[in-house]
């Protein structure tokens, strides 16, 4: 009954895989790497300060929180979701921990409380998304307002972590390379180490565990993942708990280096994280992307600030630069997908 009786048999020949072939999906990520290097080179050529260890050190130390948030945001975005609450979770965990430490609670207890608050908000988002069938955008938008609101009720003051508390130990500088020249040491603090550990764990979870592969599968097609018998619901909970938990970790790192907390800290950080993830080549609709891409994305996002200020771009216009970069990357992704479909 089929009419296609005369169609020649389709040949699918296995091509030899060369180890040097570039997966077209990785092109946006590679582009981000190239752009990062180009930005460093431009900075070095124009101002001569970018290829210094001191510059790299401060770039990493000042933005380790953003790297952690970018890893956090990679998880929901890989499934086609989003977590808008990460910035607000940084605020609420910071304010609560600062209050506790001012009241004399030891720093390790405060840290545990911060992590628990993160888990609680992640679980709440998971419940809203899975039990009440809410869009991740709406669910995390509501937890974002909730977290920000509670933080503001607790305090609207700038809360300084007490000097006698050893919390700021996390921000101790470690000189990896002690240069005789002034301000050109390769210095990192524990926050950078935490960020590196988060990146490594993020990579392992996404690429070496079934939960990670389920995340990619959900991003490809949720209904397929369900019909394949994968634990979709459980994985969705893990995703939002992981992103909220990592937001707490980012808060710890940030507060340790700043020495204080405030209810308005982290406003807009969720969008910086999204920008980092997108610049890093992760598909906003899910299914493709890399943790390392998000790290590069965070670095690109970070270097925009010193670069624009060196070029005397007014601070008000910096967001335009970020916006244009996101636009370029999304267009690039579209182009790659279009080429692939052909």
């Amino acid at each position: 009954m089929t009419s296609a009786a005369a169609t020649p048999k389709q040949r699918v020949t296995a091509k030899k895989r060369s180890p040097f072939t570039i997966n077209p999906q990785a092109i946006p990520t590679l582009a981000a790497v190239v752009i990062f290097i180009v930005m460093i080179i431009i900075g070095e050529l124009m101002f001569g300060t970018y290829l210094r260890l001191g510059f790299i050190s401060s770039l990493l130390m000042d933005h380790s929180y953003l790297i952690i948030l970018a890893v956090a945001m990679t998880f929901p975005i890989l499934t086609g979701g989003i977590d808008l609450s990460v910035g607000a979770i940084v605020a609420i965990t910071g304010v609560v921990a600062a209050k506790l430490m001012i009241a004399g609670v030891p720093s390790w207890v405060a840290i545990i409380v911060m992590l628990l608050i993160g888990v609680a908000f992640g679980a709440l988002a998971g419940i809203l998304i899975e039990q009440f069938n809410m869009q991740p955008f709406i669910a995390t938008l509501s937890t974002m307002f909730l977290a920000r609101g509670i933080a503001s009720i607790i305090s609207t003051d700038s809360l300084t972590v007490p000097k006698d508390n050893n919390f700021s130990w996390l921000a101790t500088d470690i000189h990896l390379i002690d240069n005789p020249k002034i301000s050109n040491d390769l210095t990192v603090d524990l926050g950078v180490f935490v960020a590196v550990i988060v990146v490594v764990i993020g990579y392992i979870v996404l690429h070496k565990t079934r939960t990670g592969r389920t995340i990619y599968a959900i991003g490809g097609s949720r209904s397929s993942a369900e019909l394949m018998g994968l634990p979709v619901k459980r994985t969705q909970y893990s995703i939002y708990i992981i992103s909220a938990l990592l937001a707490s970790v980012a808060s710890i790192v940030y507060m340790a280096s700043m020495g204080n907390a405030k209810n308005v800290v982290g406003v807009g950080w969720e969008l910086d994280a999204v920008a980092s993830v997108v610049i890093g080549g992760t598909l906003i609709s899910g299914g493709f992307g890399y943790v390392l891409g998000s790290v590069i994305g965070a670095l690109v996002r970070s270097i925009i600030d010193p670069l624009t200020s060196d070029f005397s771009v007014p601070a008000e216009a910096v967001t335009i630069v970020v916006g244009v970069m996101i636009l370029i990357f999304v267009v690039l992704q579209r182009a790659v997908m279009a080429v692939k479909r052909r």
Binding site: R213, G219, G220, S221, S224, M228, F288
Partner: peptide, 18 residues
């Protein structure tokens, strides 16, 4: 077909049974 087109052939075969 209820597989994930964003993943490799082998991974689709083995997904959940890696």
């Amino acid at each position: 077909v209820n597989l994930c087109t964003n993943l490799s052939i082998g991974e689709n075969v083995m997904l959940g049974h890696e």
